[in-house]
Design a binder for these strands. Sequence first.
RNA 1: GGCGCUGUACCCAAGUGGCUUAAGGGGAAGGUCUGCAAAACCUUUAUUCGUCGGUUCGAAUCCGACCGGCGCCUCCA
Length: 461
Amino acid sequence: MIQLYNTLTRRKEPFNPLEKGKVKMYVCGPTVYDFFHIGNARSFINADFVHRYFRYLGLEVKFIMNLTDVDDKIIKKSNEEGAGFSAIAKKYSDAFHEDIRKLKILPATIYPAATAHMADIIAMIEKLVEKGFAYNVEGNVFYDISKFTGYGKLSGKNTEELEAGSRVEVNSEKKNPLDFSLWKKAKEGEPYWESPWGKGRPGWHIECSAMSCKHLGKTFDIHAGGSDLIFPHHENEIAQSEAANGKPFANYWLHFGFLNIDSEKMSKSLGNFFTTRDILQKFQAETLRFFYAQTHYASPLNFTAEALEAADSGRLKIDNLFFRLEELAKDALPDDSLFREEYARFEEAMNDDINTPKALAVVFDAVKDINRHLAESNTATAYLASAKKFIQHTAGDVLAVLGEAKKEAGLESKLIELLIQLRLEARKEKNFALSDKIRDRLKEIGVILEDGKDKTSYKIV
RNA sequence: GGCGCUGUACCCAAGUGGCUUAAGGGGAAGGUCUGCAAAACCUUUAUUCGUCGGUUCGAAUCCGACCGGCGCCUCCA
């Protein structure tokens, strides 16, 4: 049984999906006005661990991630770059898809975009106005939080305290400073859509309510996102959806911890960020995933180049074994009575609120164990195949920290094999100067030779 | 000011009452293997969990105080 920490109830709870065997999950995606940074990547990757683990368990997952493709930042960027707002949105949506593919993040079932759901958004706002939860002030529609009794239940805030400590600039059109925009009247030169309240565009929060409802229904299982979205974004989503639909919104709320730099939150506004693209130039996607998997999703994580280097070394330990197993196991059939305990421990870790650090420890225990077995001669092929399958399922399918073998079957590998042969002959003649030269030169071009007991193997880095 | 998170070895990090006199990874030191490397394996690296009290037969884990770090309350993953 999976236990998840639910922000709404502030405790770990057994996860019971609405429909047995199926999971409906919504994760807040990016506003497409720039390349996303590695802090954003942390949330996307953590959501991917959850997604992948559900799949591993055989659950059918409907996974929705929205793309905010119209908002103030996009408009601002479009003015800066002198391109239309939709061109900006297109450019960074494309970049987003490219980057998450590189990060080995499983694609969502649907990536709904706000601009493609205007009718749904407007319909939901109309419903809120009808029911008395929203009011129109000359083309600006606001949500009236005083009408929704549960306001603050997710973030644990009560509205009086919020008012007391609020630094929100008072907008004289609002009845209450905490009321938020559902529909914004278009200013000169801004993109707009026609609506019952005139030309304008949706506020930020309403799109998630409208699109989650459209694609997952009024009530669904999991809603996830970064911790900074708890308030006001997710709080507002609850207010909108539950007021409009008269039904509970998401049953479980998962929130991802921040990535910090020098113990400070990495964010666009502070300017202390690296884009995912920057990092992927120096490190493999698997290394970044491994780095994130080493810390529980909800904890803050400090980013340093040294920590990423350490993650790279650790990850290679799993890779090295896996490549070896691939060579040794060949097409042998696994024996499914083996590794039962390892699978059980892995699942126990993941069931415990997606404890990836613990799950990784299970993988490393297995790695050490398998390596020991390999040191013995005559390891049964069924064992090798089972070991390979275990690593593939856990480090590969669920965590996706396994590097891809870069061996190619073509001319290249034949040439390398030829050099290995020549080197072997040199070694037989104790011409170590030559044999070392071959090894060193190959290393320079990224081919690492490793002398085994009776065979030299290579890997390409 | 309100709400919440957090402080575990040289670094990262799991562990929320006895299975732990504290997983796992990185780093470092010594050893095995090797012509030498690499990879891998073995050994060592926290009697101690921010500090001080308390509860308990028993606490890193519960309670209190104090010290430190961070986040949200405003766009933000």
